[in-house]
Design a protein around this nucleic acid. Structure first.
Length: 966
RNA sequence: GCCGGGGUGGCCGAGUGGCCAAAGGCGGCAGACUCAAGAUCUGCUCUCGUAGGAGUUCCCAGGUUCGAAUCCUGGCCCCGGCACCA
């Protein structure tokens, strides 16, 4: 549909006030939200997936006569719009392209360099998209999270949380850009230029003292292997520096010294020439041994501390490095002690393969993986990874004092003992270089006084678990997963320092509340926001007392607000709350949804806590890659900008695409071909539906009855699908099966008339949740108002007609049987010109009834028993001879038989009435239907006895030899 | 490794004890329409079949059951999450 038509209907909905939420006490309500978008760039076609589902649900409930509330906002907090603004300032190529694509005038660009302005600007651009999609969003509740009123709400929320003991302070390690401030390191790379996949590696630092008191610090993940150390490795030409910390002098690589200072304080001192170290030995902590310092290219000064403790028996790299060392060095190393044993009995087959042969575990692993030298990265990494895991899980120590202790336990004990030797503290490092948006390397820094939300608190956890147990979750699997997520959930840092958008943290305004923490209770605020945007409640009145009263019913409320208004607000809140569904993408499963539940569980009584979650999956780029806003309109058009989709296909097509293309619980790839198909589907609906309204004679009453009965079934399916959030099933019923039924109706000789008009009136309303524009277009002038305000069809509008339903199902079965046989006979090159049907005699019906009574289980001697019974029966006695044979044939088929015909079904009459249809459909010259018992001449093959009630026998009369195929 | 989800016909993807040789779509084949192409519509698309039937299928191997794609056990393989990332 062209944009103009769609906009016309969008305006009509607005004028009718359909989007405006209205509280009507005693009327049912429906309140659902979609996790609001962050202001990081322009929306692409994937962002509206959840909104399409949400709008369909709101529209359904509206048609059901419920009061609905569908608000949205823009999440402006955090870094996203800061980086967007920076990229505008830098005239970043892609951002410039997107600005042009979205028709943003160049005069506007300088203002977009201000993050707050950019956030609000982007938010407005989202609203435009939502309108163009036909969403009925109540925009009176719209705002951003950096608006003054929202911040007043967040201050109240944190005040409440603090008073309930939900905030705690503790030291914390954070990823920080030394120039720009804190950044989050995650795959979305919102804050980063690269390194989003980096992991935090928690190295334990092991001190190796020289005789002069200076200490070489080795970084390791396996501190327990200190008992197997044979030497230290240092880089051949990268000198160490002194790191002075707490009166000690440690020797490490320069970059490590800098990072250690971030995490543990101290300062970086002068360089130490290698020549000074190489001839010397160091003391191995927790042992009485001394080992040499050797050089090896194994050492990467950027990883760990640039000092590597060598455990050749258990570290494949050390083993290979030793092999590459000079014979003099090897001499100094001496024996290679094995300190961990992994009993073969405990191993899996692949683990056993790794440890095949003889020698130390590292030697075996090197052999098993084929790693030849230190340059052989892939094989070496595999050997290390597999051996590390194996020994971690199955290994037991074989050194005195720890003999028989599992590796994991030994690691803990060793780490605990290291401080007495002057080491043992943790050193966090990224697994790969991480660079911030602005090109600075990101470091891990210790924050001594970080604020946390105390999600680890067992009582809070218990409250949340109780909420989860009551929650309706789609998909249900996620409901199960939530229980585990909750079990693992720990305290989360909730504040940051730096140039972020967000609300200053009330107890300490140096800190800004972090963006996840300020989005846990916002559905509640939507209720209030409507009063603020209309001016009825001034921002200054949004005091703690105000919110305590409105949300919690506590205290007298804010004195500057009239009591009636306060009561009204409280009534609004308790009307719309609890939130019926929070709808969000799968990225919210582990963070947003849990904290959303946590906060509601803590602040609200049970009856106002959320009722449902709905998780939908992503729209991905080809190959399943995650899309981000920076990809909009790029990748060779594989990911179209959303306006292009509206222009090319229309809003309804996109909405249908999401419903139709897959279940919500699955990633989909944008596929222009599929989108086109959705468009064609809609065209077909229009083609079939539009003429159905026309006036006409109608069709035979049985056929009309069947049509309406079919529509009734489709209504039932549609309603069930919506109640289960099964949008795919809804689309299947309304956009595939409905036109299918209509086609069949006309194929059977149906004609436009009252029945088709009635079906069309139902159908148009069924179209409304998913494709509202098309529904209005087709329903124009057919209803007292807009289709969107009509009632959703119910089954009771349509007469059920089991007899008509049975007849059509019967005919379809007959067609199928016939086609089956024709296929076989046509394969032999004979096209029959005529068919004779034989309808079973009434006595078989009685016999079938007996068979069904005896059930599908094999009964010994059944034919004989029924024969006896038939002899006593007035009607069947005449056919007694035929009984055993019939029973033998029919009994096994009983289980798969369709339900028996209604008593009123006249099989012969129905078949005779269908003769014309069958002739047309199959191209026969003649079709006849006779009763089995009638003396009809044509049955040379004795087929008539095959007839069963509901399953006529037939005989295909061969075409006369030489006649042309019909 | 742990937690979660999976492996279905040429492909995508429904289906969780009998109505399942298994929806729907794509692809392919044939026909109708058309000067032709495209679009559209109709039929077919595991194998065999001397008529409505039979055989063999839903990762592999066992098992439960009158009956299994569906339940159980073991194995192989794949995907997601493992944390601070709205």
């Amino acid at each position: 549909m062209e944009r103009g038509r769609e906009e016309r209907w969008q305006a009509a909905w607005r004028e009718a006030g359909l989007a405006t939420a209205r509280r009507v006490p005693d009327r049912e309500k429906f309140f659902a939200i979609v996790a609001y978008p962050g202001s990081s760039g322009f929306l692409h076609v994937g962002h509206v997936r959840g909104l399409s589902y949400a709008d369909a649900l709101h529209r359904y409930h509206r048609m059901e006569g419920h009061q609905v509330f569908f608000p949205t906002a823009t999440h402006a907090s955090g870094l996203p719009s800061v980086t967007f603004a920076q990229r505008v300032a830098a005239r970043d190529e892609r951002v410039v392209a997107q600005l042009r694509q979205n028709g943003v005038d160049e005069s506007e660009w300088p203002r977009l360099e201000d993050p707050a302005y950019a956030a609000r600007f982007l938010g407005r651009s989202y609203l435009k998209v939502f309108r163009a999609l036909g969403l009925l969003i109540d925009e009176s509740a719209y705002g951003t999270t950096i608006d003054d009123d929202y911040q007043a709400f967040i201050r109240w929320q944190f005040g409440r949380l603090e008073r309930s003991g939900s905030l705690v302070q503790a030291p914390y390690f954070a990823s920080v850009c030394p120039v720009c401030g804190p950044v989050s390191v995650d795959p979305s790379e919102t804050d980063l230029a690269r390194g989003g996949e980096a992991e935090w590696i928690p190295y334990v630092l092991v001190p190796f003292a020289l005789d002069d008191g200076r200490v070489l610090l080795a970084a390791t993940l396996r501190p327990e292997t200190v008992y197997g150390v044979t030497n230290l490795w240092v880089h051949p030409n990268d000198p160490l520096v002194v790191w002075h910390q707490s009166d000690r002098a440690y020797l490490v690589a320069r970059s490590a010294a800098e990072m250690l200072s971030e995490q543990h304080g101290g300062r970086v001192g002068h360089e130490v020439p290698l020549a000074d170290l190489l001839p010397r030995s160091v003391h191995v902590p927790l042992t009485s041994r001394s080992v040499p310092i050797l050089e090896s290219r194994l050492v990467d000064p950027a990883v760990g501390t640039g000092v590597v403790m060598s455990v050749p028996a258990h570290a494949p790299a050390d083993w290979l490095a030793l092999g590459e060392a000079s014979s003099a060095d090897r001499q100094r190393v001496g024996d290679v002690p094995v300190i961990v044993d992994s009993p073969a009995a405990d191993l899996t087959p692949s683990e056993r393969a790794l440890l095949a042969g003889s020698g130390s575990p590292a030697e075996r692993a090197v052999r098993a993986t084929g790693a030849r030298s230190l340059s052989d990265r892939t094989a070496l990494d595999e050997a290390t990874e597999r051996l590390y895991r194996l020994e971690h899980l199955r290994g037991v120590m074989t050194v005195p004092g720890l003999d028989g202790v599992p590796v994991e336990e030994a690691r803990r004990r060793t780490t605990e003992r290291l401080p007495e030797a002057g080491g043992g503290f943790l050193f966090y490092q990224f697994s790969e270089p991480v660079v911030c948006r602005n090109g600075h390397p990101v470091v891990i820094r210790r924050v001594p006084d970080q604020w946390f939300l105390h999600y680890g608190d067992p009582s809070w956890k218990a409250q949340t678990a109780a909420l989860i147990a009551r929650l309706r979750v789609s998909p249900p699997d996620y409901g199960k997963e939530l229980v585990d997520i909750l079990a693992w959930f720990q305290d989360r840092p909730c504040t940051r320092k730096g140039r972020w958008l967000g609300t200053p943290f009330p107890p300490d305004p140096e800190w800004v509340i972090e963006p996840i923490a300020d989005s846990t209770f916002y559905p509640a605020y939507f209720v209030v926001r409507r009063y603020v945007s209309s001016g009825r409640v001034p921002v200054a009145a949004l005091t703690p007392a105000f919110f305590d009263y409105v949300f919690l019913g506590e205290g007298p409320g804010e004195p500057s607000v009239p009591p009636e208004l306060l009561r009204e607000l409280r009534a609004e809140f308790t009307y719309w709350y609890p939130l019926d569904i929070n709808i969000g993408g799968k990225e919210h499963k582990r963070v947003h949804f849990p904290v959303f539940l946590y906060t509601h569980a803590r602040l609200l009584p049970e009856e106002l806590q959320p009722r449902g979650l709905f998780v939908y999956w992503w729209l991905t780029a080809t190959g399943g890659a995650k899309l981000s806003k920076k990809d909009v309109g790029t990748k060779g058009g594989a990911v179209p900008a959303i306006h292009d989709v509206f222009d090319e296909y229309g809003a309804d097509v996109l909405r249908l695409f999401y419903a139709f293309v897959s279940s919500p619980f699955q990633d989909v790839t944008w596929d222009a071909g599929l989108a086109r198909q959705c468009g064609e589907r809609l065209e077909e609906v229009e083609r079939v539906l539009r003429p159905a309204f026309g006036a006409g004679e109608g069709a035979p009453p049985e056929l009309d009855a069947w049509l309406l009965d079919s529509v009734r079934t489709l209504v039932r399916r549609s309603r069930d699908a919506l109640d289960r959030f099964d949008f795919r099933e809804l689309a299947q019923a309304v956009y595939v099966d409905f036109p299918g039924r209509m086609r069949r109706y006309f194929l059977r000789g149906g004609a436009v008339g009252d029945a088709t008009a009635k079906a069309a009136r139902v159908w148009v309303r069924l179209l409304s949740p998913l494709t509202p524009h098309l529904a209005e277009e087709l329903g124009e002038g057919r209803f007292p108002g807009l289709v969107a305000e009509q009632s959703f069809p119910t089954e009771s509008e349509l007469p059920a007609d089991p007899l008509a339903r049975y007849g059509e199902e019967y005919l379809e079965r007959v067609e199928e049987d016939l086609r089956n046989v024709l296929k076989a006979s046509e394969a032999r090159g004979r096209a029959p010109a005529e068919v004779v049907f034989y309808v079973a005699d009434p006595w078989k019906r009685e016999l079938d009834r007996w068979l069904r009574e005896s059930g599908p289980e094999p009964v010994p001697d059944l034919p004989r028993r029924l024969l006896e019974r038939a002899r006593q029966h007035p009607e069947l006695s005449a056919h007694a001879v035929e009984v055993p044979e019939y029973v033998r044939r029919a009994q096994p088929q009983l289980r798969t038989d369709p339900s028996p015909a209604p008593d009123a079904f006249d099989e012969l009459g129905f078949l005779r009435a269908s003769v014309g249809f069958l002739i047309r459909r199959f191209g026969f010259d003649q079709v006849r239907a006779v009763a089995e018992g009638e003396g009809e001449p044509h049955d040379p093959k004795g087929r008539r006895h095959r007839a069963r009630p509901g399953k006529p026998a037939f005989y295909l009369v061969p075409a006369p030899a030489g006649s042309p195929p019909s």
